[in-house]
Design a protein around this nucleic acid. Structure first.
Lengths: 345, 345
DNA sequence: TTACTTACTGAAAGCGGTTTCATGATTTGG
DNA sequence: CCAAATCATGAAACCGCTTTCAGTAAGTAA
């Protein structure tokens, strides 16, 4: 039943009222071809008298475009993801495109969205945030012929915006080493769960961490590599154990601020003072980090979303044929959860 | 140019391959009319061989529906709004509808979205979150014949999901009074800025606050009603002044956790201990509240989004003709930023 | 003046579905 | 066993827009 009741005026109504062909109306609407001044005015007047606005859906069908950019993003509830979304919004809001967000919280959702969302009749483009892509995924995307841009992950075949997590991990660790720490723990997400908060990023930060350790001649101690699910309570519980060990670390570098907070809670539980007894460095610089005075690695989160969206728009505009990788820089914000160790090794 | 290159197989291709009319294919697709077992199988096979999926856009045009629910929401970056969005997502993700988010950060955006988004050819329904609506807005919506559901605001003509902010304000204040406080300040958003974080809510909480004061026989002191823009630094600066006064309040009830944090920073600045020298109650129970041990009013944020989305779906399904108001309850989470005053008045 | 452009414009053919309508094949039942 | 109701199905119309195509009128060159 196409009885959409009081569906407003159509382009035909406008044409009839202006005594022109409906093609002409379309032409003045889109400026797609020259129209005589008089005719244009008649049409314009007819349009405003009828209070006409063209139907987006009809337009989409005719043009074979959806004017939709889909964003596939995990846990869009977490502070860092939100910032990225805001960046995307900041450019999309002024474009012809709507964007719709697909929130991934389980592996099934991921697979479901990966296979149903990147279809030409569903999205003109897809932006994937913080979700590692396998080669077979890429193959799928390619078959569907929908442009894909990656944010916070990378794949040789696709345009992506990343942060230099290796350098970030290196710099953070470097800071602790410079302060005199040697027993430095690294806390991250579980590294074999591809749906972990920050799968790739966690790995890369680990690389940076080890790299910095190497440079300082400190051997990597597997016992100091701690990982658990990405939330405060879990981290707190785990770190309570770690910090209770005889040879406990004097400093902890966490792959996220949330985990840094969990670590600080654990320290509090054990009566350890931060930073005197334990230095803590986080990652992300979420809003609350400033409140608690957390030393942390700030990422260009908003910027990453913005650039990702811009690159997508360029893609759609026809510029930017080849995959393009853009790397944003991070910088350390030193507050007061770090200081030289009391009892240097 | 409708030369959408390699546009996949259409319903006609399927029909041809199965040697049936395309109407029949549509029928098996939608189960809209009986189809003989053999025929159905032929069609099904043809579909799977061609790897056919129907074009959503064409379907939308034909059906005169958009299958889109639009969400108009301010500052979707703030923790409390995110929770609401998650609630909405939890029901929408399993429906036939996509939802697209319109982020309002300025008055212009508000007006723009209010007038362009609720159009039948743009959205099948609109959910407005935390944005007060004027009568003229309502009139506009009615003309467009698009169902609207309000979350965290209210209007007699529309279905809405609200929290009982009056009671929330009352309960929070009551808690402080029960502890023995009499000099209780109230911190809120600016009450004459309709785009303020929580315009209506702030007003209602004020009512609850006064109501509770009245009951206890405490006169309302305008000097204790503080308001400023909704962010931590601003609140901090303002409260630094307030708390420096000779007759400073012994307790503060804040209309949001963010402002409670700002208040606590101000106390810290002045060397006031919380809760010994100053009790603080927040509102929202955002994630970090637990970390800092903030006593606060927990709202059913997720639930509000969920219910709002459900009501919208009911609307669209034809149930629920009359405006329906649903009120969710709040409850106080007592942690350790409140205690009896040291120096009771 | 005639032939040839050039500038506009309307009719019609899609885009890919859904639904109405008419028809032929089957049942049903009296 | 024949009329009537039922079922399954294909052809065609329609949703509201864009674009091609062909044709008319006006302008230009020879």
């Amino acid at each position: 039943m196409s009885k959409s009741a009081s569906n407003g005026p159509t382009i035909r109504d406008v044409a009839k009222r202006a005594n022109v062909g409906l093609a002409t109306v379309s032409r003045v609407l889109n400026g797609s071809a020259p129209v005589a001044e008089d005719t244009r005015n008649k049409v314009l007047q007819s349009i405003s008298e009828l209070n006409y606005t063209p139907s987006p859906t009809a337009r989409k069908l005719s043009l074979g475009k959806t004017f939709v950019i889909s964003i596939i993003i995990p846990f869009f509830t977490r502070p860092s993801f939100i910032e990225r979304l805001r960046g995307i919004d900041s450019v999309m809001a002024n474009s012809d495109y709507d964007f719709i967000v697909f929130n991934v919280e389980t592996m099934e959702k991921r697979d479901q969205y990966f296979s149903t969302v990147p279809r030409p009749d569903r999205s003109d483009g897809v932006i994937i945030v913080s979700l590692p892509t396998k080669d077979e995924d890429i193959e799928l995307f390619r078959n569907k012929r929908v442009p894909v841009v990656l944010i916070d992950t990378q794949h040789p075949a696709l345009t992506s915006v990343i942060e230099d997590s290796v350098k970030g991990g290196d710099d953070a660790t470097e800071h602790l080493i410079a302060l005199g720490h040697r027993r430095i723990a690294y806390v991250s997400d579980i590294l074999h769960d591809p749906l972990a908060h920050n799968y790739t990023a966690s790995r890369n930060r680990l690389m940076g961490y080890r790299q910095s350790l190497d440079r300082a001649g400190v051997a990597f101690n597997p016992d100091y590599h701690c990982f658990c699910h990405h939330d405060r309570p879990t981290t707190r519980a785990m770190m309570r154990d770690v910090l209770a060990r005889p040879e406990r670390p004097t400093a902890v570098f966490c792959a996220s601020d949330t985990q840094a907070l969990g670590t600080m809670e654990a320290a509090r539980d054990l009566g350890l003072r931060v930073p005197e007894d334990l230095s803590v460095v986080g990652y992300d610089d979420i809003e609350i980090a400033e409140y608690v005075g957390l030393t942390t690695m700030r990422q260009a989160l908003f910027e990453s979303g913005k650039r990702g969206a811009e690159l997508m728009l360029q893609h759609l505009g026809g510029q930017l044929a080849v995959p393009h990788v853009e790397c944003l820089s991070t910088n350390l914000v030193i507050r007061n959860t770090t200081c030289p160790p009391q009892d240097p090794t």
